[in-house]
Design a protein around this nucleic acid. Structure first.
Lengths: 199, 199
DNA sequence: CCGCATGTTGGTCGCTCGTCCAAGACGCTG
DNA sequence: CAGCGTCTTGGACGAGCGACCAACATGCGG
């Protein structure tokens, strides 16, 4: 095998773990499956990571950041608030339908973390991050449109996060994209009724 | 060990698996952990079940039925539609906070089923069941109150299911019951705006 | 009372897993 | 060129897993 800095190998292993998890699920992402995906001998693993858990921690934080980015990037500009909201939700949903595995893994990791001693904090940070992103987007939109929300932003962020999370989960199971988009539309309309012009 | 019909032993093993899963998670519910919980020798397991998967199927369908019952039982009667909705959502949430582990296992089982070849159908039935329960409750409420929903009931059911599912998931992680109940209140109010008096 | 279906038991097989290690190869620095 | 830190590799380990089985116990129907 070509000589490579341990740091670089770590990155490749994380990327490989990423692919294995999306393809086969978190539980199937064994040390052997990961090094196999990365085309490396098994011994490499514990030269780069002190344990499998260490890699999982790394992967979890990166998935969290990725999801947050995905939500942020879905934000669409231009038009009035209504158009803006519906376009943003639509863009977010396009991302979901384009790469469902990624979201699926995110949930799997959350549940894994909730059960693993010492990982609870990571799960908490994960959802803390989601809520913060939603709060940020809501406040941004409010500022840009000159409105304010008639409901506390943290509550609104939790509501938005819940709808999206629950909707994705349901869609992962039954793949009913039509009704899912209808729910999204409904939620968007609801959001509009919670905005009032700033005097 | 006292002599017992295989049928009865199956039930006890299922109950034991139930307890192990709620306490330690689905992945920890090994054949050994389950027979240990049931205080039976290991050999019993494959005398009562042809495989661990067979037991998991059984457990999954029972969890599904249990969740559906929990939702149905949360339905509160009396008062106008507004009171009815908010009391029902509140009762449902009380159940969640009283026994979080049960819901947690439900999610774990869903994700397990989504990854396990031949189990996808069970996950689909699980969410099909949830959606049907919500549809039923919505139609029941509409009939009793003499209103009709301005949004197709399947969409509304999916919306309700998504909010509850997503909210529970978020709460399982950060245990913020206060904001969660606020979201519930918000959702209840939203529901009311989607009902119109039947002419 | 015998025979047979049914239930019980402890041990064992083969496999996969995370982890560890010894021995060697590489390549920079002095 | 010698020395040394860094990296590479294949194999081995002990533990835990699902599954299986042979031998034995029980109790009911004839």
């Amino acid at each position: 095998m070509a000589r490579m800095a341990a740091k670089d190998r770590r990155e490749e292993l994380i990327a490989a773990a990423f692919r294995v998890m999306v393809r086969d699920g978190v539980t199937k992402a064994t040390t052997r499956a990961i090094v196999n995906e990365a085309k490396m001998p098994l011994g490499v693993f514990h030269y780069c990571f002190s344990s499998r858990e260490e890699l999982l921690q790394e992967v979890l934080t990166r998935f969290t950041a990725r999801s947050a980015d995905a939500a942020r990037n879905a934000l669409q500009e231009g038009g009035d608030l209504g158009l803006r909201v519906s376009k943003s939700l639509g863009a977010f949903w396009d991302g979901v339908e384009r790469g469902p595995g990624e979201h699926q893994v995110t949930y799997e990791l959350t549940h894994y973390a909730l059960r693993q001693a010492g990982f609870e904090e990571l799960a908490r940070r994960q959802y803390q991050s989601y809520l913060e992103v939603h709060q940020g987007l809501l406040m941004e939109a409010a500022e840009a449109e000159g409105i304010r929300w008639t409901v506390p932003v943290p509550v609104l962020a939790r509501y938005l996060n819940a709808v999206l999370d629950g909707l994705i989960l349901c869609w992962l199971v039954d793949r009913n994209g039509e009704d899912s988009r209808e729910v999204l539309r409904l939620t968007g309309e609801h959001l509009l009724t919670l905005a009032e012009r700033k005097e």
